[in-house]
Design a binder for these strands. Structure first.
Length: 667
RNA sequence: GCUAGCGUAGCUCAAUCGGCAGAGCGGCUGAUUUGUAAUCAGCAGGUUGUGGGUUCAAGUCCCUCCGCUAGCUCCA
């Protein structure tokens, strides 16, 4: 006897073997038709997976209204795509085909080089498969037999995966759809007909099992939705997101440029972009002073020996610009990090426990030779400036200092309306040898970080192994760009290693008149100015809040008769510290307004003969439109108040969500 | 670095099968004097990313290099 509890609270009893689809059928044929999968006691299963024979089970039938059903359908669509590819091309080896945030992909190893030209015929074949509406049939077999099946199908990647990735599984499952049989954990929709609308998006290379030393596969990306309308809406959203890409807006709004002649990944800040950066730097600098940091300046190069001590060289040699070779074997490195220089400032004199914490801050420009394929826009570059600082403190001060660093990073993000971030705890991967320092130091540091994260209630941060810096664990603030990629912005890192005996052997004299070892904290609330502002451009879709806007206001004259008055107003505003320009062209007002609106200028000061006579300006708000005439002084006060408050009036929250935050690989 | 795609005026893009390199915006000049999202006219602007090849003829086809884009790998 089985008791089945449904979400509405009703209970059904069965004395015969029963599947979710049978329960649905009993409730109504329409529901049965709509049922794509089921959730039994919180576990997602196929609609035809038998329920337990006795006891109690809570059952939820999943239809296209449930997000989980959408993910399952997309995975089924990945199978349909793989089936189509195998029909169209010879010698196709299947690898992995999981769902991702808004779609799916499948990796293939095959002789034919896929390109976008192949998409229409693959899509046509997929449409045929969907139209045929064949069932997905689950088959479970012992692992020996699974190996045999994959061998018989000449699917060598699957054979390898059973031996390595699935070494612990006793039975393995396959899904069959017509002639297509694929090793797969599932789940799947009952039949292909439920796939409403799909589209192939791109093809790219991907290494088998993420290992760059192994063969490169061809990865086909697609998206699928239950209806054509949803698909179209999604595609429109991607288009919209591309329009606010910081590379597009950076060009349009003249914020930055990159010249191949200067070098790949080396950002040239144009005057308008430089204003934004300058304002942000001033904001951060003020905060640092309030928090007891001391500004320092250090050079852009340092001797290789310095980085040998720190461990950066030769460990990161292949992502550094090659050393500059001087006579007599002297070699200099463009600095890849600021910490060794700051360490040398700490070491420039004996330190007492009374001096600690020592907090050394610098907008330090560093250079890293990122591989060419990784560069892009402002988010991944070869030269960038960190809002860097290093804190040298006692063991006892670590907790407080670390907390304050996180609080400052949070303040900065909050001030900019960037509340859509996730916090990542980067711990070391014990299996890797890329870290320096003793296991005890690491354990101590990781425990300290975890404690702070818990105390501060940081949202959703579970430790991620392998995400640590080579010298210590860290907390990163991670945001998503307009096309769904994640970027690390702010970071706070705890370091027991650079101060250690093996590295820089830092000391301070304690109250006991004996030398002690300080602890180091590396921190940068913005991270890199380049990346941060790249993300910020997309966050505001180019429409910066007044305090950051390169051009805060523009004086627009109605006719040339008001030019003299207009120029006076412009001077007035400039004298009050506002960033202002004037449009005195012999254009109609409407045209001047349009130009200013398109340049995303927050305020327009319209002046005509009426204003000249009354000593007013007619203020036009970029968002609200015409606010009417007001005395010039009142307008200035209004803007100054908004600047002082750092008011955020408009941000963009959506991303196109092409990101990887989906399921783990279905096999 | 790897796989795929792309590179035409300052910007966005067009150019049929290999057959005289074009448009809009922007810029400059002139006319117009206009009160809340585009006034009209004229002019200038190009070694089609680079170097080579095929051809009577190359923006278009082939090769090299440079750069950009997506993804993979990496990211102190």
């Amino acid at each position: 006897m089985l008791k089945v509890k449904l979400p509405d609270g009703s209970v059904r009893e069965y004395s015969r073997p029963v599947r979710p689809i049978d329960v649905a059928e009993e409730i109504g044929p329409r529901l049965a038709k709509a049922t794509l999968a089921a959730e039994v006691d919180g576990q997602v299963v196929d609609s035809v997976t038998p329920l337990p024979e006795s006891g109690e089970a809570t059952l939820k039938l999943l239809t296209r209204k449930d997000p989980e059903a959408l993910r399952i359908m997309r995975h089924s669509c990945a199978h349909v795509m793989a089936r189509a590819v195998m029909r169209l091309f010879d010698n196709v080896q299947l690898a992995f085909g999981p769902t991702i945030e808004n779609g799916f992909y499948y990796d293939f190893d095959m002789p034919h080089k896929l390109s976008e030209e192949d998409f229409p015929k693959i899509e046509a074949e997929m449409a045929k498969i969907v139209r045929d509406d064949e069932e997905f049939e689950r088959i479970e077999v012992p692992r020996d037999e699974a190996v045999k099946i994959c061998r018989d199908l000449a699917q060598t990647l699957k054979v390898e995966h059973i031996a390595s990735g699935l070494a612990d599984e006793r039975t393995l499952s396959f899904y069959r759809q017509g002639e297509f049989l694929d090793l797969c954990r599932g789940r799947h929709i009952p039949s292909a007909g439920a796939i409403g609308a799909f589209k192939l998006l791109s093809v790219a290379g991907a290494y088998w099992k993420g290992d760059a030393s192994r063969q490169q596969l061809q990865r086909l990306y697609g998206t699928a939705w239950f209806t054509k309308e949803e698909l179209d809406k999604y595609l429109a959203m991607i288009e919209e997101a591309k329009r606010r890409d910081h590379r597009v807006l950076g060009k349009q709004l003249e914020l930055f440029t990159v010249s191949p002649l200067v070098g790949q990944g080396l950002v040239l800040w144009l005057p308008r972009g430089a204003i934004i950066r300058g304002q942000l730097e001033a904001f951060v600098r003020d905060e640092l002073i309030k928090r007891g940091y001391e500004p320092v300046y250090t050079p852009n190069i340092g001797r290789v020996e310095l980085y040998q001590i720190s461990g950066h060289y030769p460990y990161y040699a292949d992502s550094q610009f090659k050393p500059i070779e001087m006579e007599e074997g002297e070699r200099y490195l463009l600095k890849p990090m600021n910490c060794p220089h700051h360490v040398m400032i700490y070491r420039s004199k004996p330190r007492s426990y009374r001096d600690l914490p020592v907090r050394l801050a610098e907008f330090g420009t560093v250079y890293r030779y990122e591989k060419s394929g990784e560069l892009g826009g402002m988010t991944r570059v070869r030269g960038f400036t960190q809002d860097d600082a290093h804190i040298f403190c006692t063991e006892e001060q670590v907790g407080d200092e670390f907390r304050q660093c996180i609080a400052m990073a949070q303040l900065v993000l909050r001030t900019l309306g960037l509340d859509d971030y996730r916090v990542r705890l980067g711990f070391r991967d014990p299996a890797s040898d890329k870290y320096v320092g003793k296991a005890e130091s690491w354990a101590k540091a990781e425990a300290a970080i975890e404690r702070v994260a818990r105390d501060m209630n940081l949202p959703g941060c579970t430790p991620e192994l392998g995400e640590a810096a080579f010298y210590g664990p860290k907390i990163d603030f991670v945001v998503t760009d307009c096309i769904g990629r994640e970027w690390q912005l702010g970071t706070v890192q705890l370091d027991y290693n650079l101060p250690s005996e093996d590295r820089f052997a830092l000391e301070y004299i304690g109250p006991d008149n004996k030398p002690h070892r300080p602890v180091m904290i590396h921190r940068a609330p913005l991270g890199s100015m380049e990346r941060f502002i790249g993300v910020l451009i997309e966050h505001f879709a180019g429409a910066f809040p007044l305090w950051l806007a390169p051009e805060q206001a523009r004086v627009l004259t109605v006719t040339e008769k008001a030019e003299e008055y207009g120029r006076g107003v412009e001077q007035n505003l400039r004298a009050e510290g506002l960033r202002v320009s004037g449009d005195y062209r012999a254009e109609k007002l409407g045209a001047k307004i349009r130009d200013a609106q398109l340049k995303l200028i927050p305020y327009m000061f319209v002046v005509g003969e009426r204003d000249a006579a009354a000593g007013t300006v007619s203020v036009r708000d970029r968002l609200e439109g015409d606010l009417g005439a007001m005395p010039v002084a009142a307008a200035i006060d209004k803007l100054k108040a908004e600047v002082a408050a750092k008011t955020i009036r408009q941000v963009v929250k959506t991303t196109a969500g092409l990101g990887e935050r989906g399921e783990s690989n279905e096999y």
